[in-house]
Design a binder for these strands. Structure first.
Lengths: 144, 144
DNA sequence: TATTGTTATACTCTATAACTATA
DNA sequence: TATAGTTATAGAGTATAACAATA
């Protein structure tokens, strides 16, 4: 945040700061590919939700993560193709497809979680635990 | 942030919360196109930097905003084509191109600034001024 | 050799529209 | 008529590589 030019106005805009901080987190994750499976953060989040909610439907994944049905479809397809997730037709609603982790998916979820948690600790190292909690709390209030 | 499924792990990840909050801000801006010129937030930031630093070079814009030279070139070209920004060759360094606002650019900057500031107030309405300041301070510590 | 800027290109993210199948 | 899911497509955002002109 140290520049040779006057950037006072932009440095006060929360939307700008969110974009910069978010991009910085994404860059840190991508810079350490050796620490876990070749999954993007959103896919680890999907494994987390399926692990905690076996049989969850695709649409519920999307709603929870703020991703449209149309965009989550190929992400699920990729996890199915990698044999980390299984689709099972709902016995009570022929439209729903229920998602479950495979044994490989359970392993990928645990390794992916460890990678994310190391990444979070590293990328937010300038904050202590107390400030991490304050930041989480403030950010949650900006998400409807 | 209220879901019917268990999303406790993902809701604790700062990278995830940053992505959601940032996307929410961008959606609010895009949802109110009538409030200012047809510029994206990053272009208003560029006008802000040129207004505060007349003669700034393209590369300095990029460095300040965290955008690569290769990606800021077309953004500048678009502002030049819209006659909001003028390029002037540096008298002392033939490689540099110095950027200045035109009279239209000055007007677009003021209107764009007002639009951004209304958008910021609206999208961060759940926070009071004190929490806005706390959030800015925490986010700045995540940007190198 | 290094720096400023440009073009081409590719991949990801997000959004809309149109479609099928089921309720 | 509404909902769950899919496919096609288009627009931004961001990344690398290769290039020209100047220092």
């Amino acid at each position: 945040m140290e520049h040779t030019i006057d950037s006072r106005w932009v440095d006060d805009q929360i939307g700008y700061l969110l974009r910069r901080a978010s991009a910085n987190m994404a860059a840190d994750y991508a810079a350490h590919p050796d620490e876990g499976p070749p999954l993007r953060p959103v896919q680890v989040s999907m494994l987390a939700l399926i692990a905690a909610n076996p049989g969850v439907a695709q649409g519920e994944l999307g709603t929870t993560l703020g991703i449209q049905r149309t965009n989550i479809a190929p992400l699920v397809a990729q996890l199915v193709e990698a044999a980390l997730v299984e689709r099972r037709p709902s016995p009570t609603d022929g439209r729903r497809v229920e998602l479950h982790l495979t044994a490989d998916g359970e392993r990928a979820w645990r390794v992916g979680r460890d990678r994310i948690e190391r990444h979070e600790a590293r990328a937010t190292a300038p904050l202590g635990d107390a400030d991490r909690a304050r930041l989480r709390s403030l950010l949650r209030r900006l998400i409807p």
